[in-house]
Design a protein around this nucleic acid. Structure first.
Lengths: 352, 352
DNA sequence: TTGTACGCGTTATCAG
DNA sequence: CTGATAACGCGTACAA
């Protein structure tokens, strides 16, 4: 009701709303409205704004597990760093939708998801997004961007780390150091993040003309339980087969890397003197004290920022239907590059 | 527009809205509405719902610096853990207002603060909240709760850690171990968190009949620059004066604790064999590898949760003006207890 | 028990 | 350039 403040009325919408229509208005009235608004501490109601088909400058963040779990290392915090920063730059505030549904009556996931419609658009995090509910959202044209590759849901925009290229780069690094026989240890998981790494690993291996253990065995080992499968004996056997570099993928638990470190140590080998070790990702927090692994870092903050940019891009699209003739430039690729990390666990093979 | 679905119209609100008024309605129609809603995939527009209900189930979180700075250890993350959890329990979503105002025109602090009115109520974090702007908010009856003690702003609700009692408990612990001469090292800072610690320290000292260095010198040392003031010589001198236990306060930088550790080590003493050390708070991240300090932990998550409870309490007050005769029970105390941490840096004095 | 009508706070359209 | 007026989609007294 700031309209009573000064003398005007609809004008308030214009000056406070950014005057999208490009309507000219007296600087004086503009100032008066602004003053009155500040005086009364008036702020346009986001709900009403939204209802009137405008936008409320709110970006949603929906995560299926708690956004801030007690264990920092399992949280989405690193993404949020980038999300918050980029959102601030673009003039958006953030709404954190708590994935765990409130104590209310029907606390099913689908209902909870609909709440995001309050915001102009929404970012989604986490593996277990209920597909059906999300499907409805995107089919309705609601702007949504998923952080992390997600192809199953056609039509859902996403940004993801380029694990293929990053993994390939690590292999190329090992090849350049002189390693000829390299193996990859991965967990028994078919997440895109996992298969992408394997893809990049194999591709780079082929391109460099490298191989796995002698005898033509598969250079990729899947271990449902790395602690049990990746033993000192296993490492010794591979070593005997000419393998000089071991690569592990990063997972939530870091089990593969942990098992590899333990097994190599147990085999009486040390890195990078005897064998080279590389990690496709970052080490778990409890292993942070160890020598920095050769590998790459997932640019989580960058991903968050990229997701925000993608989302505001979507907003601009359906927000300015007949706007300028300049087409909205779509992101060239939804992939964000990972940063190669030289680390201290890889070096030339013993013979070199 | 699901009203066209079945045959009814307003009824849709009732059945989908939970029928708070206890109005009776045919099970048949109810079922029909439900069926139609599912059929069309109809969901009440949250925005419209908020508009009609004059409440948006949104809790604001305003921090004057970025909520998620790059350096994790300086962030408000630990508080957010509790805030998010409690907010979810109470059925609220969170709006993150970044202190840095958006790219809009006047980016002054006061304007940025007014944005919080968008939410039903707001939590404030950080030392440098602009008093004037906050003053206006609370004077207008806007529900606000500050995390951390803040007495200057009369009328502003707050929750804070009970540093007085926690510090006293640490002293009592040292006394029980047999220490008779104890000193406190604090920085030259008059924040409530700092003065409270000193107060608790002194009170417990008096109550236990303990003293500082012999000669009646003040048991509390203020050092503007701990690295310069708290030297090995200083420690040796105190030790010669009979001091067997050194206590440091926690600060943003952890400078006092860091200086104390360095100085004690430099003096050729070791804890807890020669002297006992205690920290009134948690050690800085880079010192996390050291032996766990005796002291206490600030219950940041608890504080966040308590703040949310306080805020929703305020909401209930002015939200149900003429509601039930049952008065809203105000929190007994805005203080949250700290958790004593036994740690490994304190033990009986050498003579014991 | 169910339908009618109004208002919530904004934005957009259209006269003045 | 500025002041009315009509939606927006839903809650809710009130009437049927």
């Amino acid at each position: 009701m700031a309209r009573l403040a000064g003398v005007s009325q609809t004008t308030v919408s214009l000056v406070l709303g950014g005057n999208k229509q490009g309507i000219a208005l007296h600087e004086e009235t503009r100032a008066r409205v602004l003053a009155a608004a500040r005086e009364l501490g008036y702020v346009p109601d986001p709900a009403a704004r939204r209802l009137a088909a405008a936008r409320n400058n709110l970006l949603g963040v929906f995560s299926f597990t708690a956004t801030f779990p007690t264990a920092v290392e399992h949280s989405y915090y690193p993404f949020l760093v980038g999300v918050e920063q980029e959102a601030a730059v673009q003039g958006f505030d953030l709404v954190l939708f708590t994935g765990s549904s409130p104590g209310g009556a029907q606390a099913d996931a689908s209902g909870a998801l609909e709440r995001v419609r309050l915001a102009d658009g929404c970012l989604f995090l986490g593996r277990h997004v209920p597909a059906a509910a999300l499907r409805r959202l995107v089919d309705d044209g609601y702007p949504a961007v998923h952080i992390g590759r997600r192809d199953e849901l056609s039509g859902l925009a996403w940004v993801g780390a380029d694990y293929v290229e990053a993994s390939a780069e690590v292999v190329r690094h090992l090849a350049a150091l002189g390693h000829r026989r390299v193996v990859l240890v991965r967990e028994d998981d078919d997440a895109p993040a996992s298969t992408d790494r394997e893809r990049g690993f194999r591709a780079a291996l082929d391109a460099a003309g490298l191989a796995g253990p002698e005898g033509g065995a598969d250079p990729v080992t899947r271990a449902a339980d790395p602690a049990a499968g990746i033993t000192s004996e296993w490492v010794r056997a591979r070593y005997a087969e000419g393998v000089t570099a071991f690569v592990a993928e990063e997972t939530d638990t870091g089990a593969a890397w942990r098992a590899l470190l333990t097994a190599v140590e147990g085999a009486g080998l040390s890195a990078p003197a005897d064998v080279s070790l590389a990690l496709l990702g970052s080490p778990p927090a409890d292993l942070a004290g160890r020598p920095e692994p050769t590998g790459f870092d997932i640019p989580r903050a960058e991903l968050g920022a990229a997701a925000v940019r993608a989302l505001t891009g979507l907003l601009a699209e359906d927000g300015a239907p007949t706007a300028s003739t300049v087409p909205t430039v779509p992101a060239a690729t939804p992939f964000v590059a990972c940063a190669f990390r030289a680390g201290h666990t890889a070096g030339p093979p013993p013979g070199a």
